[in-house]
């Protein structure tokens, strides 16, 4: 027993001290290559049960969800109308000023589809494993999205699988802006699973319902314009230097099934 405890401590220490090309990382890589197909098969096998479980869960919350979505549709229609008006005006002004076009993330970006095959169950980590790896072109720190918005970033890659750290993870930080308004901040996850926009200027006006998107600035790994969340609550306290903005993540992480890795 003592030998196994010492071995565990040694593994723990060596893993953090050795480079990414070290022996233990190599062993983990080989193990993950073998396990990934099994996990993929297992994930496929449980899919019908998962769908049934989600269906039952959705049924209970359907009425309140419907009400919330109807309100959101009304708000989005107004936002689209406003955006269409300002877009043409913006294009015209850009031409007049001869401004360089700063690319905004769109569906035409080069992306790698992947399926979520496993996830963490500990409170300390919010990660999932996907069935695409370096053989498919996935690289470390590639942004990961789905049809709803930003999922996270790639934090570990093997040949046929990759680990994605979700935006809800306590070590996830994303440079973001509130739209409309352009108020800047950093989206941070937490161990509680909450997502907050930090370092928001105290004088800036942020209101519930506004969208928070990736800024793409400061050499951020995330392209500009990916939806991260919607402002849910704004907390202003006299003693604080900044206001804290609570977000509702755009992605429903409980139902995360397919994702797209954005090639940088």
């Amino acid at each position: 027993m003592v030998a196994l405890v010492i071995l565990s401590l040694a593994l723990f220490t060596v893993f953090f001290r050795e480079p990414a090309s070290g022996v233990l990382h190599g062993v983990q890589d080989v193990g993950a290559r073998i396990l990934a197909p099994l996990q993929s098969g297992s994930a496929k096998a449980i899919q019908p049960f998962r769908d049934a479980w989600n269906w039952v869960g959705d049924l209970f919350g359907a009425k309140s969800e419907n009400k919330r979505l109807r309100a959101e549709v009304v708000r989005l229609r107004r936002a689209v109308a406003s955006e269409l008006t300002t877009r043409s005006e913006n294009e015209h002004l850009r031409q007049l000023l001869d401004l360089r076009d700063d690319p905004v993330f769109n569906d035409a970006s080069d992306m790698i589809p992947a399926r979520v095959i496993s996830g963490s169950t500990e409170v300390w980590y919010s990660t999932v494993t996907i069935n695409a790896g370096s053989a498919d072109g996935v690289q470390l720190f590639d942004p990961v999205i789905n049809e709803e918005g930003l999922v996270g970033r790639v934090t570990d890659v093997t040949a046929n699988a990759a680990q994605v750290t979700l935006v809800t993870d306590q070590e996830s930080f994303v440079d973001a802006v509130v739209q409309p308004g352009g108020v800047r901040g950093v989206v941070a996850g937490s161990v509680r699973g909450d997502v907050n926009l930090l370092y928001v200027d105290k004088t800036a006006k942020v209101e519930p319902g506004q969208f928070v998107v990736t800024s793409g600035r400061n050499g951020s790994i995330f392209p500009r314009g990916i939806l991260v969340g919607i402002v849910e609550n704004v907390g202003r306290q006299d003693v604080e230097l900044h206001q804290t903005v609570a977000l509702r993540p755009a992605v429903d992480f409980r139902k995360l099934e397919y994702v797209m890795v954005v090639k940088r």
Binding site: M1, L4, V5, L7, S8, L9, A10, L11, F12, T13, F15, F16, L24, Q28, G31, A32, L35, Q39, S118, G119, S120, T121, Y125, T127, T129, T155, D156, Q163
Partner: peptide, 15 residues
């Protein structure tokens, strides 16, 4: 290995 966790932590606990 399965969950890309640091090796040794879970092993230590479970030993």
């Amino acid at each position: 290995v399965a969950m890309f966790g640091p090796p040794g932590v879970d092993s230590l606990v479970l030993v």
